[in-house]
């Protein structure tokens, strides 16, 4: 049953992307890592006028691993996320997800394929309740078709009930269960951040791109968030974290990329990277 479902999905993807199915996924050896590469950027460049935001960058992210993306402000880290999620189109290069090229695809298609993103600035839906925010993450809800909603098909009502239970579970997970009926705008910044994390988790994404997930939340909650991130990786998710807090990077990352001026300067184990004199000079100023 699972095999046929996977085959159907693969067929759907092949039709959708019109890619050569014989084409092998691009793969960059992640040193000693034996886990497979889920997401890869190969020689990706993005310029804004004369400014090269990302210049011929190649990065690969593995299943079940947490990869840190560090670098000074303006290094191009968030631009990499924007390129992966389709908010920006690369000028050149290839972005590959599970063997399929996703260059230039709109963000909603990329999200539906399984790449989710936590934004640097929280970006919750202010006028929606916490529960509604989380409910929105669920993909392919039957009730999102207005005709199905109008007719109140049983399938839609059942799905909504199931989604509601699941959304409540995620709110409880981030300890916001008592705030489910509060408008997101009435939550504190830290709570909004947790809500955004709950929303991302509810989406069931295969790849999670987290842009400063711990910024603005209290130390106790930072610990919980890091636990969640670790658990997600253990469950086989591919996690990429942009973080300025070096202790967080040291604590959770399996691999770290260091970027500066749009280029990948170096890549390695967290200890290696933070011990690199070039990194220390460029990033830490020591």
């Amino acid at each position: 049953m699972n095999i046929s479902l996977n085959e159907n999905l693969a067929k759907k993807k092949r039709r959708f992307f019109k890619v050569d199915t014989q084409q092998k996924p691009l793969y960059t050896d992640l040193k000693s890592s034996k886990s497979s590469c889920v997401l890869e950027l190969k020689d990706v460049t993005k310029s804004f006028g004369g400014l090269v935001a990302v210049g011929s960058a190649s990065l690969a992210f593995s299943k079940g691993k947490i990869t840190g993306l560090i670098g000074p402000n303006g290094a191009g880290k968030t631009t990499v996320f924007n390129l992966i999620t389709g908010f920006l189109k690369p000028d050149s290069g290839i972005i590959c997800f599970n063997g399929y090229t996703i260059n230039g695809r709109p963000p909603w298609q990329i999200a539906q394929l399984g790449i989710g993103r936590l934004f640097q600035d929280v970006r919750v839906f202010d006028k929606l309740t916490a529960l509604e925010n989380v409910l929105l993450a669920k993909k392919e809800q039957p009730g999102e078709n207005p005709l199905v909603s109008l007719l109140r098909r049983k399938s839609a009502l059942d799905a909504e009930e199931k989604n509601m239970d699941e959304a409540k579970k995620w709110l409880k997970f981030v300890e916001l269960e008592e705030k489910e009926d509060s408008l997101a705008e009435n939550l504190s910044y830290g709570q909004q951040k947790l809500l955004a994390i709950a929303r991302l988790l509810a989406g069931g994404f295969e790849v999670l791109l987290l842009d400063e997930p711990t910024a603005g939340i209290n130390p106790q909650m930072v610990k919980s968030v890091l636990d969640v991130i670790r658990r997600l990786a253990q469950e086989g998710k591919t996690v990429v974290v942009i973080e300025h807090n070096m202790s967080v990077i040291m604590e959770i990352s399996d691999w770290v990329y260091f970027m500066d001026e749009g280029k990948v300067v170096t890549f390695g184990l967290p200890k290696e990277i933070l011990g690199d004199p070039e990194v220390r000079k460029a990033y830490l100023g020591i």
Binding site: P107, W108, A111, E144
Partner: peptide
């Protein structure tokens, strides 16, 4: 933008 990042067309 966030709606589209959640997979909404």
């Amino acid at each position: 933008l966030v709606a589209s990042a959640l997979g909404k067309n």
